[in-house]
Amino acid sequence: MGSVMPAAQAHIIEKLRRDILSLQGLAKPVRQHDWSRGLGPISQAFPNQYFPTSAVHEFLVATAEEKAASSGFIAGLISSINHIPGVMVWIGTKLQVYPHAYKFFGIDPEKIIFVSLDREKDVLWAVEESLKCEGLSAVVGELRGLSFDVSRRLQLAVEKSHVTGFILNHNTSSINANTCVSRWKISHLPSAVYDDLPGIGFPRWQVDLLKVRNGQPGSWQVEWSASKFRFETRAKTVGISERRKTG
């Protein structure tokens, strides 16, 4: 084999590389908004400093409390990355929602369509079907486990429709590899104290980005106040035991 690669071959390889990137959900964003506007230091973790839309993100939730925290963070995320959040679909089994609370996170609750199903299989079908639907601003699915094959199907769906998908994965005991572009874990933090004021403050979370494709995982302490994220400390990018090599 010669060391000089014919031009045609180089072209093919270049094209394949591009294809791989787009298969990974990292095609150049279709809608060029200033994504990093509300995400502060978190956006540094992503390739090109863009929060990957038209991709599926996985959130690990072990408890009901964590589910609430993740829901809040996702709601804040959606309202931060969209100029005017459009319609979103929230799918799960036995949903227990209180629509009023979404207003606090900058989302009009009447623009959320809640689909509460009985079986896990149905949830998967509905999530995939919704992810195929152009014009939605986000789809949130509550699942018990996300296999590689399923995540692949979801990824294929979003590549066409450019919808952003968020999966709340309730199965944290056995995490397997999947094609989601990122994996997050959101946990509560005690609220910040301002001048010894009584009562509880704004929602605060420990945001751990456990893996992100072609990006830099990290960990942040985030507060949601006055309809935006606030970052008190600089990003700590070291010291997460669960961090793995990805991509």
Binding site: A64, S71, Q96, Y98, H100, A101, F104, D108, E110
Partner: peptide
């Protein structure tokens, strides 16, 4: 919509 403090998850 009420904007006072309300939980995201409400038990049925």
């Amino acid at each position: 919509w009420r904007n006072n403090r309300r939980p995201l998850q409400l038990l049925a």
